[in-house]
Write a protein that binds this DNA or RNA. Sequence first.
DNA 1: GCGATCAGCT
DNA 2: CACAGCTGATCGC
Length: 465
Amino acid sequence: MEKCKEERKLMKETVISDSSTFDDLHSFSDDDGENCFQSDNLDDDGTTHHLEYSEQICSSCVKKRRLTQTNLFQLWGVKNPADHGKSKNVKQTNLFQMWGFENPGKSKSVQKTTTSLASCKTQRVCPFYKRIPGTPFTVDAFRYGPVKGCSAYFLSHFHADHYIGLTKVWSHGPIYCTNLTARLVRICLNVSPSFICPLELGTEYDLKGIKVTMLDANHCPGAALIHFRLPNGQCYLHTGDFRASKLMQSYPLLANQRINILYLDTTYCNPKYRFPSKEEVLKFVVGVTRTYLNNYPKTIVVVGAYSIGKEHVYFAISKALGVKIYANASRRRILQSFGWAGISENLSTNRKDTPLHILPISSLKFEMLEHYLASQDRQYTRMLAFRPTGWTYSETIGENLSLIKPTSKGNITIYGVPYSEHSSFTELQEFVQFLRPEKIIPTVNVGNAVYREKMQSYFQQWLKA
DNA sequence: GCGATCAGCT
DNA sequence: CACAGCTGATCGC
């Protein structure tokens, strides 16, 4: 134990020195004594930065996995008797409690032996594609501690994989984001308001001599594309997470404007991802719901959702059926914070008032849904559930939604629907061919050199034409 | 005891 | 690989 502690300390020091090396290579001090990221650390072939793509971790610690307890009770699907005593002390936040009733007993079929690495902390280094060269800015880089040379931290949108590391003890610098994202950072993460700097969409700001504009990203509420114009005339666009749309082609900062570097959300940068438009998916979801309710009027409709995003799936059902939306208090609070007109009238605080319920997407499993249905005072005889996720796709289904077949068990039916808030391959192509940027830096799927090369070859093909 | 963070999992 | 998290475990305070 003590040995491990020492190793961790040693590793931390090692990593910090590595980090300094990186910064020494890629940053300089300007007249104010503030560090900026140089723009000349970027090569044209896109192959010379493999090291920078991988966030640094301690390999020696990874090898030293230490077994903790194997939970045989879970392995057997039996309740751990010791949990009875614990339950009084342990703060439980499981779904059953969220719904307001007892956990019927965890019976995960297979629970792997748990291992622990927390004792061997990994220290990551901010990868180059999160830094904006020639500026003291980073985008979605909160998990690296204070980033050397960074005096302003941008948050593109409020999803956990982008704000990870941002907590109420944050003190490494100002956080720039849209108004809506700023509210979420404050109310959900309790970050000190003194660090939160909300920016109006579509308004140009001068931040440390750089012209910055946030543009709607057509992703989740509050998500932004970030446009930077440097004093030397260079323009960079960071898409954060986005779904490219025709509307973006009318943004004054994008139409007929030169973009020198495009930091691109390449989540679905593969021709196999050809999913339908959001509108088509919404139409499909509403159609399925109507048909189902015609056949089985006593049906409860459930939509799975993450913290924010994909709200229109249940808004569409709500509107089409003329029913309110039930969501738990924390989700209602978040939805209210969007400041959307008329949202309050469509939310219900009582689950008995409406057949349309929103649940965490992780709870869309038959066992949990059966329990949820059983808890509804026999109001309903069936359940229809939707799981909206971009990964719910199949090459054969492609854009033909009628090929989607639900999975059913007993009186519960679950539809996976390809409602995506990221660009499809085609949308990416159109966006890049519209923007014709000088250079493209992918920000997703970059952990693997083969993928990186594949993506760069797509970019080249698109821009050849 | 609480919050932060991480590996593993989906 | 990643979506956008969740869970359990551990550690620092």
